[in-house]
């Protein structure tokens, strides 16, 4: 978690305007507030989590990214962050498009379904993978659209979405993803972090 926060924070310039979509209990918002910018908002679907955020004094709106991002004007945030949530939406493509409208830049992080530990579980155990990062069973997972680093990378190039930076994370090891090492990073990383722009 901490590594992911650090990477996200390093992608953001100081004193910019940030929206954290699916902000959960506000841990990333708090982290960014202390390190980068005071001007940060959150959108979260769970009432309980929204209340936790508000209790900490964070500016959070209860809402659903799939229907409520529309209310923000075009380019109203310097950065919009979607941390490990894309896979839980009914329509991830629509959400990415909305994010790219609302934010000048978008940071998306993806739990990598192509990570070798995940692949091995399906290959050898023959069961849906359950890992530290993906702790749910198939019957109770909120994750509807799992994807791999390579999937997202290809999605961006197919949709003409500019990737400014793509970073792979394995445990606490950080490395850059590029076209030539994509297959390897897709196998050896548990998390992908992308800075994109429409």
């Amino acid at each position: 978690m901490k590594e992911e926060f650090n990477i996200i924070s390093n992608l953001i310039e100081e004193n910019t305007r940030v929206l954290d979509v699916g902000c959960g209990n506000g841990d990333l918002m708090k982290f960014l507030q202390e390190n980068k910018t005071k001007d940060i908002r959150g959108l979260e679907i769970s009432k309980e989590k929204v209340q936790n955020c508000l209790s900490k004094g964070l500016t959070v709106i209860e809402g659903n990214a799939e229907s409520d991002l529309k209310q923000f004007p075009k380019s109203s945030f310097d950065y919009v962050i979607l941390s490990q949530t894309l896979q839980a939406f009914l329509n991830p493509e629509l959400v990415i498009n909305e994010l790219l409208k609302v934010g000048k830049k978008v940071i998306v992080t993806i739990p990598n379904f192509g990570y070798w530990r995940v692949r091995l579980q399906l290959l050898f155990k023959g069961t849906m993978p359950v890992t530290e990062n993906l702790p749910h069973e198939w019957y109770n997972t909120p994750n509807l659209h799992m994807c791999t680093i390579k999937d997202f990378y290809n999605f961006c190039s197919n949709k003409n979405i500019k990737i400014f930076k793509s970073i792979a994370l394995k445990k606490s090891r950080i490395s850059e993803i590029n076209k030539s090492n994509l297959n390897y990073k897709n196998l050896d990383s548990h998390l992908g972090i992308f800075l994109i722009e429409s």
Binding site: R41, K47, V50, Q51, L54, L58, T59, V60, I61, E62, G63, Q71, F72, P73, S76
Partner: peptide, 10 residues
């Protein structure tokens, strides 16, 4: 929100 005001809601 549409004017970028600082608003929380629950």
């Amino acid at each position: 929100n549409s004017i970028g005001a600082d608003v929380g809601f629950v």
